[in-house]
Design a protein around this nucleic acid. Structure first.
Length: 512
RNA sequence: GGGGGCGUAGCUCAGUUGGCAGAGCAACGGACUUUUAAUCCGUAGGUCACAGGUUCGAACCCUGUCGCCCUCACCA
């Protein structure tokens, strides 16, 4: 990067960089105190033309320029908004005017000036003093159409944040949602903890893990796929209301709702059950929506989502009967439906077939928010069974527009049954599809005694999607995973080219 | 992984049947003291994603590769 030849557009900016230095000014700027947010400057600006407002100081990036010679207009943006700046030759010293000549789109400047509306009625700061805060060496996108190339925007998210309206706002909403979750949980007496990312056994969920290794220990390790088992061990240790907001990693496909690393919250409440979890997730989501301040009915593309509580609770069995058209315990009928859906049934455990049919017929139809409750127990190795029916597990999943947003259990705290379930492998389930991975440290902890409890996981990225009308998970993650950009298919990496410049040249420039 | 689409100047995009690589914005030089994508005159700017092939001649046709998007499969 350092040795690369400056682009012709960058060269023009480097000249201005030099010019600013020649004026005795620091082109990279210094601490700049006393500025107010641009949104506040707009609020303080008088509405009527001809009325002088107060003198203010702001700082921001030059987004737009309109040059009339000895009178120049700029639009300057900070993270609260934009305001117009008017720079008049007559108002500035010779040195200041020289600086104005060295300004480019994308530069960061500080402005002291008087608030007043322009002749066309736009709120404006009439500049009295400009302070160079940072030179930009990069050419900004086209001023009217902006930057649209999805790949460039994902690889250069800074550009997306600066120049595309709504991107910064959406990402700041994400942080406010997470803040709201912490507030809600703190109010309910939960404490936040951090547990290891590197696991010897990647348990707590059914997913393929990323592998890594520790050099000096000489052992294989896994990136965590869930937070569950460590948090439960903390509950055994007496932390009765505990949660973690953290990154988990799943080595699986990438699409509009899946990124290999994503943010989950898992929380556990001693002496609760899945019913307490339903109340809690409802409160978490409603509080977050309230904090955003756009009401309980939020847009979802052409559609809407109504978050007004309480949300309906429907059993797995009744939803199955409603959408699949037969009772889930009518094995012959279920097999018939499965065949129609081209689901493989040979040698597959009946409950696995039922679940595949459920996923095919029910999940996409769930507009929600709706709690699906009481799952077949065989599918839930970490879940307590219903007291009056050991075939049914006290589990719910929260669905909104076909997306699974939350998954919760009455946690299984019977160490003998847990041990057995970890060792049971349902027919037709691959090992990596199973949660049945033996975590002996966890089992040892359960023997000490874990209080009966409710536990829940919520996909934070998906929650943010639903609350910000974002159709892709890439819209709510600053830096979603992308393949490394290469120079081109046949060409080797740039470093290889550098090493072999002379030979490469002869090979790639055949005579004739 | 399968199928479909896309990749041309810093950015947004044209590019005819295969016949000298185009525009707008941005940049550079000039004019302009109330503009709103300002306007006007002029200048410069290209590894047509990458590598091959066909052809007198390829941005365009063919093959392979890379990346992104959509979709299906898998998953949360």
């Amino acid at each position: 990067m350092n040795s690369r030849k400056p682009h012709r557009l960058e060269a023009a900016r480097l000249e201005k960089l030099q010019k600013i230095g020649d004026l005795g000014l620091d082109p990279w700027g210094q601490r700049f105190d006393g500025h107010i947010p641009i949104s506040e400057a707009r609020e303080r600006c008088p509405e009527e033309s001809g009325t002088d407002g107060e003198t203010v100081r702001v700082a921001g990036r030059i987004m737009l320029r309109n040059n009339r010679g000895k009178l120049k207009f700029y639009h300057v943006q900070d993270w609260t908004g934009r305001i117009q700046l008017m720079v008049s030759r007559g108002d500035l010293s010779d040195e200041q005017w020289e600086l104005v000549g060295a300004l480019d789109l994308g530069d960061l400047i500080g402005i002291d000036g008087r608030l007043r509306v322009s002749q066309t009625g736009e709120k404006t700061i009439f500049a009295e003093k400009l302070t160079m805060l940072c030179k930009s060496l990069a050419q900004p996108p086209e001023k009217f159409h902006g930057a649209k190339d999805v790949e460039m925007l994902l690889r250069q998210r800074s550009i997306d944040l600066i120049y595309n309206e709504g991107v910064l706002d959406r990402m700041l909403r994400r942080t406010r949602i997470i803040h709201s979750i912490r507030q809600t949980l703190s109010g309910e007496g939960f404490v936040e903890v951090e547990t290891p990312v590197l696991h010897a056994v990647a348990g707590g969920a059914a997913a393929r893990p990323f592998t890594t290794e520790h050099n000096t220990l000489g052992i294989e390790l896994f990136m965590r796929i869930a937070l569950e088992l460590h948090l439960k061990r903390l509950m055994v240790g007496g932390i009765e209301r505990v949660y973690e907001i953290g990154r988990v990693f799943r080595n699986e496909g990438i699409d509009a709702t899946h990124n290999p690393e994503f943010t989950m919250i898992e929380l556990y409440q001693a002496y609760g059950d899945y019913g307490s979890m339903m109340d809690l997730v409802e409160k978490i989501v409603v509080d977050a929506a309230e904090m955003l301040g756009d009401g309980m009915v939020l847009p979802w593309g052409e559609d809407q989502i109504d978050f007004t509580p309480p949300w309906p609770r429907k059993t797995y069995a009744e939803l199955f009967a409603e959408h699949a058209g037969c009772a889930m315990d009518d094995t012959d009928a279920v097999t018939e439906v499965a065949r129609r859906l081209e689901i493989d049934t040979d040698g597959v455990h009946p409950d696995v077939v039922v679940n595949k049919v459920f996923e095919e017929t029910v999940e996409d139809a769930l507009v929600g928010p709706v709690f699906v409750i009481d799952y077949p127990a065989s599918l839930c190795p970490l879940t307590k069974r219903k007291a009056d029916n050991p075939e049914i597990a006290e589990r719910f999943e929260l669905f909104i527009h076909g997306m699974e947003l939350a998954n919760a259990y009455t946690e299984l705290n019977d160490p003998l049954l847990q041990d057995e379930l970890f060792r049971t492998q349902l027919d037709g389930l691959d090992e990596e599809d199973s949660m049945a991975k033996l975590d002996t440290d966890f089992l040892e902890a359960l023997r000490i005694g874990m209080p009966p409890a409710g536990g829940m996981g919520i996909g934070i990225d998906r929650l943010v999607m639903l609350l910000t009308d974002s159709r892709s998970i890439r819209d709510v993650i600053f830096f979603p995973l992308l393949k490394p950009e290469s120079v081109g298919g046949g060409k080797s990496a740039p470093s290889d080219n550098d090493k072999n410049t002379t030979t490469e040249t002869t090979e790639t420039n055949p005579a004739g």
